[in-house]
Structures are given as C-alpha cells and as structure tokens.
Write a protein that binds this DNA or RNA. Structure first.
Lengths: 105, 105
DNA sequence: TATCAATATAGATAACTTTCTATATAGGTT
DNA sequence: AACCTATATAGAAAGTTATCTATATTGATA
C-alpha cells in the first residue's frame, strides 16, 4: 500500500479520483462519482502514455486503493475510501504506540 | 514520506522505534524512549550491514519520520510521532473528501 | 463479419533503489 | 598523540520501477 502511494504520479491520480467532479469533465456512459473515472481522462490529464497509466492503475488496484468496473468500452476506476481510512487509522494507532504489532501486510 | 514508508525494512524499523522497550534491550548511555535507539541495536536486529542501516535511517530522517541525537559515540534515533499522526489524519481527510459516499462497508 | 475505439499486455530501456565493501569522521580512552 | 568504537559516506553491483513503442484484447457498431 505504501509502495502504491509512494509514486507521485499515482498519488496525484488517486487524489483526483477522490474528488472526480473537481478534476474531470462529465462522462456520458458512467457517473464520475458512482462509477469512477475512465482511463482516457486520467491519461490526458496526467500527460503520460496510455500504457503507462494502465500500469499505474494496475498497481493502485493491486493495493486495493481503487476498484475497476467495465461499462461498454470503458474501464472506470473508483477510489477505495475504506482502504484509505484503514491505513489512516492504522498510522494514528501506530503513532500512539498502542502495542499493535500486526504484520498482515 | 510515502516513499520512506514504502520499504519493508524501513517500515519495520520505524515500528520497532515506536515501541522500543518491546523490541530492544536497555541501553546504558541513552533511554530507549526518551533518547531513541542506537544504530548498532537496529543493525543487529534487522540483520543487514551497518552502512545499509545508516542509509535507511537517513531516508527516514529526511522524511522527518525520525530524529537523531548524538550522545558520546552513539547516535540515537527516535520516531516523530507527530509526523505520523499528521499523515494519518491527512489520509482520513483525503478519504472523506468527496460529497457522496456509498456506505458499502 | 469487418472494423473501430478503449484499455491491457509484452518487451525494451533508462532511472532509481537497495545492498554490499572499503574508507572517512567524530568522540572517547589510554 | 595514538588508538578504539560507533556511525557516516563513497562507490559499485544487482534488483526494481517507470516509461516508452508495438501489439493484443474486448466490446460496440456498421
């Protein structure tokens, strides 16, 4: 998870996905919030090639920070807010020294 | 910060530093909690060479996840709990950002 | 069925990271 | 001062990651 977040490109994309209406135009075939953002929009905004973006999205998905959903030709990526909250709480917990030594990573 | 945490070795070390009494023997010249843990202890426990550990500690320090303090010959590393809390809260905040949240927990 | 459009996969290359060995530095001790 | 001990820095080799171009896959459409 930290590895997935450690790339500035991926972190930027994830933050965009968390507030899709602030960063992307409306989509015809899928709702920005309910369905996610299509790869084409992300590719255009980040300014890298489409295969590179695909690879980044794969890593975010493997870390379960996003989920994907196909509608027609498009694949929509949506952030997994629950996962981010778990990570946030885990950090707070670790910072407070609450003798939790889990290694479920 | 995420880059610093993305190495399993560094994450492990940081978690040890957060609970030093659970993971290290007492030190003569510095208190495990108040002063931090010396590089020698960390090196022995992680099973890498001393220069490698030094490099890892440098990265953690550059990310301000630890601070260092010299006492005599030793350098003691102590975790920056405040920084971890800031990161944890930032993640929680980012996760909550957008308006609509489907509660499929 | 042939074609198109959106995304994924494969493979190559460059850049970065991790680790090591050897050596330097800085503080303490004799 | 000379030496010892703990940690840092330098430099090289190996492993990993990011990026590209070219191609494959998958679903929609004419």
């Amino acid at each position: 998870m930290f590895a997935a977040l450690s790339s500035p490109v991926r972190l930027r994309i994830l933050l965009w996905l968390l507030e899709p209406r602030a960063h992307f135009p409306e989509q015809q075939d899928g709702d920005l919030v309910d369905d996610g953002v299509c790869v084409g929009f992300i590719t255009e905004k980040i300014g890298l090639t489409q295969p590179t973006v695909s690879a980044h999205m794969k890593k975010l998905a493997e870390a379960e920070l996003v989920t994907s959903k196909r509608i027609g030709n498009w694949i929509f990526y949506r952030p997994q807010r629950k996962k981010l909250k778990i990570l946030g709480n885990w950090l707070l917990c670790a910072a407070d020294n609450s003798s939790v030594e889990n290694s479920t990573k």
